[in-house]
């Protein structure tokens, strides 16, 4: 659990982060979203003390982050950034093993962990372990960057626009991978982005920042349904609201018994995908399947109702 209490950062006359308080529960994905200059990155960087707060405290599992040297704190917290920041002079394996080595792990344990992570990120260890970062594609570099952040099995992972440099297709794949890995390890993730779409896709909670202030901190559904200010509303985009709402849930959550004609869609897809399929194929209902078995259908009328503003 991360408890942020009255956190403030001032540079001379300008206040970059202004009395922000929020609590991030264990195992949650908290996405901090805002425009550039909103203070979102500074807020996150105060968690691992890359920026020292001017006032306020950060407690991790009840323990003040200032009670130990900053570098020791940082070794307990994973950190992945845009542009990955891989060490160009070290191999993929050495890059991933950085923090375990700093923590003094035994060599065999580091090697095993490196291979485990590479496999987890669908990179064949035998093929990639000894390559230099410059010999990888952009998507692979980004995956190694996240693997490196997870190397020492941190409970908390901080991510600063980790997918910012990726093209849309690789990006959505990387987001899916992150969700899968988060589920597997139960890591608490704090992720900074300027992209509301990404925030809604990934976040279990979203913190909206503007001009150093925390405007709203709530679940994605809450944020879409009841934006606290005009600015939050703008960030969501009024034209996209119903679709964003639909994207929060999967077909499986709303499948109903019954038959429908035509090709089936997979139950793991979002309601938004189902809605798009209905409109595109001109059907009022489409069959749903799970693991190849038809399990029911979704109807256009039900989807339309779900897309309406929650009361």
């Amino acid at each position: 659990m991360i408890e942020i209490d009255g956190l403030t950062k001032t540079y001379e006359a300008t206040t970059v982060v202004d009395h922000v308080s929020l609590t991030i529960e264990k195992g949650e994905i908290c996405v901090i979203v805002g425009t550039s200059g909103s203070g979102k990155t500074t807020l996150m960087r105060m968690i691992n003390r890359l920026v020292e707060p001017t006032a306020g405290t950060v407690r991790i599992d009840g323990r003040d982050t200032r009670d130990r040297p900053a570098h020791q704190l940082r070794r307990q917290i994973g950190y992945a950034i845009q542009g990955h920041g891989l060490f160009p002079h070290r191999t993929v394996g050495q890059n991933i093993g950085t923090v375990p080595r700093l923590l003094g792990w035994e060599k065999p344990r580091i090697a095993a962990r490196v291979d485990e992570l590479l496999s987890l990120f669908q990179l064949d260890p035998a093929l990639y372990r000894d390559r230099l970062p410059s010999e990888l594609s952009g998507g692979q570099q980004q995956r190694v960057g996240v693997a490196r952040a997870l190397a020492a099995e941190p409970d908390i992972l901080l991510m600063d626009e980790p997918f910012g440099a990726l093209d849309p297709i690789i990006r959505s794949k990387a987001q899916d991978d992150l969700l899968a890995i988060q589920k597997r390890f139960g890591t608490t993730i704090v992720l900074v982005t300027h992209d509301m779409e990404e925030a809604i896709t990934l976040g279990s909670k979203i913190a909206v920042m503007d001009k150093g202030k925390l405007l709203q901190y709530a679940t994605p559904a809450e944020i879409i349904a009841r934006p606290a200010t005009d600015f939050v509303n703008q960030l969501i985009g009024t034209g996209d609201r119903p679709f964003r709402l639909l994207s929060l849930e999967t077909v499986l959550d709303h499948v109903e018994p019954g038959e429908a004609a035509g090709d089936a869609i997979d139950a793991s897809l979002s309601l938004r995908d189902a809605y798009a399929e209905c409109l595109w194929s001109g059907r009022d209902a489409i069959p749903v399947e799970e693991a190849g078995q038809r399990i029911g259908r979704v109807t256009l009328s039900r989807l339309t109702a779900l897309a309406a503003r929650p009361q």
Binding site: N48, H71, I81, L102, R148
Partner: peptide, 18 residues
């Protein structure tokens, strides 16, 4: 030293000397 590399090194908890 590329900014992101330095940033990552500090973020992972390397000391100034390291």
């Amino acid at each position: 030293v590329p900014r992101d590399v330095d940033e990552a090194a500090r973020g992972m908890g390397m000391t100034g000397w390291q």
